[in-house]
């Protein structure tokens, strides 16, 4: 029995290491999937906003057709957002879109007939709802990223994360400048 003592210890350690690896591996995968799910939610809402915009622009055009500058700006922001790839790019494009929309709605303030339009009011609600869903999705995405980042940086999980080549994920953060965009208020 004494002869095998060393062997048992080695086997025990190996088992422990393998078990630890599998455990952390699975937990990383779960957290990563969580992030992916939340990110998909953000993308859905960005898409939904992009879909709403042509309607909104058409309605505003019906009352304020001469405000060409803002329409071009919106169109540009929209195509940029639809073409954006990756988190950082999307964050920026999204901020630009928000600021253009804010200006559009500010312009709308000057047209009482437009403001009284039922369709415009409903579109504004839809837009505000989408913005709100987007901010909720952003919050939840960032929470998921936070959980993931904290997990892969802490020991001993960090060792496994290093072996898997995992890196910290980006937050969906809006720069302070972009946050001062006129908010869609009702």
């Amino acid at each position: 029995m004494q002869k095998y003592k060393g062997l048992f210890i080695v086997l025990g350690i190996v088992f422990f290491l393998v078990f630890g690896y599998v455990y952390y591996y699975n937990s990383f995968i779960t957290l990563e999937e969580e992030i992916n799910g939340k990110w998909a939610e953000i993308e859905n809402n960005l898409q939904r906003r992009a879909d709403l915009i042509p309607n909104l622009v058409a309605t505003v055009k019906g009352y304020a057709s001469h405000e060409e500058a803002i329409f071009t700006e919106i169109a540009q922001a929209r195509s940029r957002l639809l073409g954006a790839q990756g988190v950082a790019d999307k964050v920026q494009a999204s901020a630009a879109m928000e600021s253009a929309l804010g200006r559009l709605l500010a312009i709308a303030e000057a047209y009482p007939e437009l403001k009284a339009d039922q369709r415009f009011a409903a579109l504004q609600d839809e837009l505000a709802g989408t913005e709100n869903r987007l901010s909720v999705a952003r919050l939840r995405y960032n929470e998921a990223v936070k959980a993931y980042n904290a997990r892969i940086r802490r020991l001993p999980a960090r060792i496994v994360a290093g072996m898997m080549g995992l890196e910290a994920k980006e937050y969906f953060q809006i720069e302070e400048a972009a946050r001062e965009v006129p908010k869609v208020e009702f």
């Binding site: 009011a121 579109l123 009702f186």
Partner: peptide, 11 residues
């Protein structure tokens, strides 16, 4: 209940 409908109920 779309956001637009909900908004209309409020307004």
């Amino acid at each position: 209940i779309t956001d637009g409908r909900a908004g209309r109920v409020i307004r």
